[in-house]
Design a protein around this nucleic acid. Sequence first.
DNA 1: TGGAAAATGCTTGTATACAATCATCGAGAC
DNA 2: GTCTCGATGATTGTATACAAGCATTTTCCA
Lengths: 240, 240
Amino acid sequence: MNDTRQFHLLAGQVSDRGARSDEAIYQALWEAIVEHRLSPGARLPEDALSHAFGVSRTTVRRVLQRLALEQLVTLRPNRGAQITSPTPSEARDVFRARRLMEGALLAEVLPRITPADLKALEAIHERETRAEREHAIRLSAEFHSRLVAIADSPSLSEALSQLISRTSLIIAVYGRARAGCPCEHIELIELLRDGALAPVQRWMSAHLTRIEASLDFTASGDALPDFEHLFGHHREQSAS
Amino acid sequence: MNDTRQFHLLAGQVSDRGARSDEAIYQALWEAIVEHRLSPGARLPEDALSHAFGVSRTTVRRVLQRLALEQLVTLRPNRGAQITSPTPSEARDVFRARRLMEGALLAEVLPRITPADLKALEAIHERETRAEREHAIRLSAEFHSRLVAIADSPSLSEALSQLISRTSLIIAVYGRARAGCPCEHIELIELLRDGALAPVQRWMSAHLTRIEASLDFTASGDALPDFEHLFGHHREQSAS
DNA sequence: TGGAAAATGCTTGTATACAATCATCGAGAC
DNA sequence: GTCTCGATGATTGTATACAAGCATTTTCCA
């Protein structure tokens, strides 16, 4: 019943509609997914989204396809889109991939890191500790993204960003307590300041393993989120 | 003048049209790009493609968006799609990313490799040496894809596959002689058989660096490929 | 009363129509 | 003769219409 209002709050964030609204809609959905306001398994009817964002289904569909290629939503033929529920094996794969990539990337990060970078990471960590649960999850992802960005390799940054987003999804399904303890990140900053590669790599691997170990793969994780409360009303009934 | 016929030959490969033609069209375009039958800079008019493949622009557009997200084609607003011409800095980044990822991945490959895997790699190498120039490029990409697949990590395989495809694009623009000497791959197979990690990693890094070093970054690389000869005529004028 | 089959409603898949934007070509003025 | 401005053609961007598919519910029969 009235799916539309569920997404309206989401659409509220979208200011510049009209020209190139794809990016805005993508951002809104991406944040909602990463911040766990949209739970895995949630259905994403094109009609409701198009109405909420004030665009046609064509535009919504394009954004959904992009999210699907990034594995954040699953597109089943004739069944529509829903937030991806990673399987346990997919989850383990993502952590393995992250351990490998982030470990290797740190060797590129360390020689390039500047005091400004450390300051930026500290700032994110600071906000992490203060933020609400939801924002903390996004900020934790932002911390890792920012870290790998120091390596200055667009290809690797993008690949890892996708893995990081998917991690948020995994935590949404299998996470018990909070996601990987943001408090831990301060330890990494100290190690980065020291500048020794091996300890940094060891810490990162352990960090990711700790998060993975904190998961409970027995949970099912099928939920129907409350879209109405999520995105609020973007415009009344509208339409001509 | 009649762009349509340019793509018809491409469409000829697409047998199962109708239900879920996306994958077939994607494959056809992907192969044409990787095999250098479609050169960087080539424009991809939606109308011509839709006519050649016998589908609507909607379907073509979806495939083009996917290729764009994989960085194989570039989508400029109101200007349409064209095969991506990687910049020199993008090219260098791809090689750096590949050195890093493939190097790290080999540590995962080596413990898992089986005699069957070695046989499969040998088979690809065999076909590489016999194939025409065009197919050799695709087979070289396939060799690397197959190699990383042994690590059994879907996430990493997909990420690396994209980098490998982009490498083909880079060679198309900046390559002088043939792409990285397929003959070299036999050396890697021998090293893999030995089973020592360090030499394998060293070889791979050197292999990629050799390919990169063989490039000429002074070339511009703007060309308009002959679509008609490329894809042939898929169906006459058709349409109702 | 329980199960199965059919019908209805809703959602997606595809194609097409119309509007907007850009590139090209031509004409005119300096 | 060259440069600039205007018009025309082609291509893309968006929205909508229609058809096809799935899910649910209702109804009928055992």
